[in-house]
Simulated assay, not measured.
Amino acid sequence: MLTVAARLLGDAERGSVERLLDRDPFGGAQVAERVSMAGLAWWRQDARIFGYGSRRNLESLCWVGANLIPVHATTAAIAAFAEMVAGEPRGCSSIVGSAEAVLGLWSHLAPTWGPSRDVRPNQPLMAISNPSPIAPDPGVRLVRPDEIDMLFPAAVAMYTEEVGVSPTADGGERSYRERIAELIRARRAYARFHNGRVIFKAELAVVTKHTAQIQGVWTDPELRGHGLATAGIAAVVRDALRRVAPSVSLYVNDYNLPARRVYERCGFQQVGTFATVLF
């Protein structure tokens, strides 16, 4: 058996955790947002954070909740984290983060947690810190709370297309609708409306002191290829840089060439590589 150096972290080590997350402002954004909001106590987070390394030299982190997210995970940390969770029933819907760490974790966990529904091994992680050179679409704006009934069908369509299953399956409609409503209330949901329906949308799904991470990008299939997404993303970038964070980031599947071209035209540059294992 491996001698496990990983351990459950608590609020007493919050400073060390935040310093480690600061070293990976884009790759660690999902964990950094949650730590900033609720600290490290599992009972506040409905998740656990494991650390690898001594109290004086914290080397790696692993968030274990609805998603499993490694941050700065070394080879030894990956093995330690995997051993800690391999004996538990899988409770997460995905493993996501730095490609090397995610694929390393999956190589350890696949025998007990497999099979996966999909493995996406190459997802460019991209960021921008200046306004896009593309003229922003003036019709893209923040969604109002009274517009959720128009946004929700587009959000479901995006999720289903991207993930491969509907977020409303198995009784998930209420929780997914509340998630969309939460993004609207937080002024993180953007859309372009035409004749009472959404034709472009995007959200700032993660916000930290370093970056606002775009997710949920979707264009009406009948209107793709006409520049809506490019001008729409430029509008989201402009508002996010002005109002939310000093940079904007996202990750995209390597095979989604149209989306990658949109982000490149908007001025995003690759800063890392993610991978995702979906269950």
Results as ranks from 00 to 15, higher is better:
residue 123 Q to F: 05
residue 227 G to T: 07
residue 115 P to S: 09
residue 198 V to G: 06
residue 273 T to Y: 00
residue 75 T to V: 11
residue 80 A to E: 03
residue 220 D to Q: 06
residue 142 L to V: 02
residue 260 R to A: 04
residue 152 F to K: 09
residue 64 V to P: 03
residue 97 G to D: 02
residue 87 G to R: 07
residue 119 V to N: 02
residue 143 V to L: 03
residue 188 R to I: 08
residue 207 V to D: 06
residue 241 L to E: 08
residue 244 V to C: 13
residue 39 G to V: 02
residue 84 M to V: 14
residue 159 Y to V: 06
residue 271 V to F: 00
residue 90 R to H: 04
residue 30 Q to E: 06
residue 36 S to G: 14
residue 85 V to N: 03
residue 46 D to W: 07
residue 145 P to R: 10
residue 86 A to I: 08
residue 98 S to E: 15
residue 190 Y to K: 05
residue 264 E to T: 12
residue 160 T to Q: 13
residue 30 Q to G: 07
residue 251 Y to T: 02
residue 88 E to M: 10
residue 217 V to Q: 05
residue 49 I to C: 02
residue 77 A to T: 05
residue 202 A to F: 13
residue 112 T to S: 15
residue 255 Y to W: 15
residue 8 L to M: 07
residue 277 V to F: 09
residue 125 L to Q: 14
residue 44 R to F: 06
residue 198 V to T: 13
residue 172 G to V: 10
residue 97 G to I: 00
residue 168 T to P: 00
residue 76 A to T: 10
residue 191 A to L: 04
residue 140 V to L: 11
residue 55 R to L: 01
residue 59 E to R: 14
residue 53 G to W: 02
residue 220 D to P: 06
residue 241 L to M: 12
residue 23 R to P: 00
residue 141 R to K: 11
residue 139 G to E: 13
residue 218 W to S: 08
residue 231 A to Y: 01
residue 249 S to L: 07
residue 28 G to L: 03
residue 214 I to F: 04
residue 193 F to Y: 13
residue 236 V to M: 12
residue 124 P to S: 05
residue 269 Q to I: 08
residue 3 T to G: 07
residue 3 T to M: 09
residue 200 F to C: 00
residue 1 M to T: 08
residue 217 V to L: 11
residue 18 E to R: 15
residue 224 R to M: 03
residue 144 R to T: 09
residue 111 P to L: 10
residue 84 M to Q: 13
residue 16 S to Y: 00
residue 46 D to Y: 02
residue 215 Q to V: 09
residue 200 F to D: 00
residue 238 R to A: 15
residue 246 P to F: 09
residue 225 G to T: 02
residue 279 F to R: 12
residue 8 L to T: 12
residue 43 W to P: 00
residue 124 P to E: 04
residue 2 L to F: 09
residue 21 L to S: 07
residue 41 A to V: 11
residue 159 Y to K: 07
residue 131 P to K: 08
residue 96 V to A: 12
residue 9 L to R: 14
residue 157 A to Q: 04
residue 245 A to Y: 10
residue 257 L to K: 11
residue 84 M to G: 00
residue 167 P to C: 12
residue 34 R to P: 02
residue 187 R to T: 12
residue 199 I to H: 01
residue 184 I to W: 10
residue 237 V to I: 15
